[in-house]
Simulated scan of single mutants.
Amino acid sequence: MKEVKAPTSSSYHDYLISSLKDPEHAAAYIGVMLELEEEGREPELLRSALKNVVDARLLSDNLSEEAKLHYEQLDKMLSESGGSEIYTLIEFLDALGYRIALVPKD
Rank of each mutant, 00 (worst) to 15 (best):
T88V: 11
D14W: 03
K51E: 10
D75R: 12
G97Q: 09
V103S: 11
R41M: 06
Y12F: 14
N62I: 00
F92R: 14
E66M: 08
Y12K: 14
A95L: 10
T8I: 07
E3V: 14
L89K: 11
L96Q: 15
T88L: 15
I90V: 10
Q73F: 09
A56D: 05
V53D: 00
A28M: 08
E35L: 03
P43Y: 03
L78G: 04
R41E: 05
A67D: 12
A56L: 07
A49C: 10
L89P: 00
Y12R: 15
L78P: 04
S60A: 15
I86D: 03
S48P: 01
F92A: 09
V4K: 14
S48A: 09
P43F: 05
Y12Q: 12
S9V: 10
G31V: 01
L102V: 01
S19D: 07
E37G: 01
E35D: 12
R47V: 01
E3G: 04
D106K: 14
Y29Q: 03
A49D: 05
E66T: 13
S64T: 15
T8G: 15
N52I: 02
S81V: 09
R57Y: 02
V32E: 09
L59G: 12
P104D: 06
E24N: 08
L50M: 14
P23S: 05
L89A: 12
D55V: 06
S48Q: 11
R99M: 05
S19W: 08
S18E: 13
S19G: 00
L50V: 03
K2H: 12
L89R: 11
A27K: 01
N52T: 03
D106H: 11
L20W: 07
H25C: 05
T8K: 13
E42W: 06
Y12I: 14
R47A: 03
A28N: 07
L46H: 00
F92N: 11
E80G: 02
P7D: 09
K76Y: 07
E38Y: 03
T88Y: 14
K5V: 13
M77E: 15
L16P: 00
K51V: 02
L36M: 08
S79V: 01
S19Q: 14
S10W: 03
V53W: 02
D106R: 13
L102D: 01
R57Q: 10
S84M: 11
S81H: 04
K5N: 12
A27W: 03
S11R: 13
L45A: 09
D75E: 15
L16G: 01
E38C: 01
K105S: 12
S10Y: 07
H25R: 10
P7Y: 08
D61H: 10
D14H: 10
M1W: 08
E24A: 06
V32P: 00
L102M: 05
H70L: 13
L93S: 07
A28V: 04
S48F: 02
K5S: 12
S64W: 02
L50G: 02
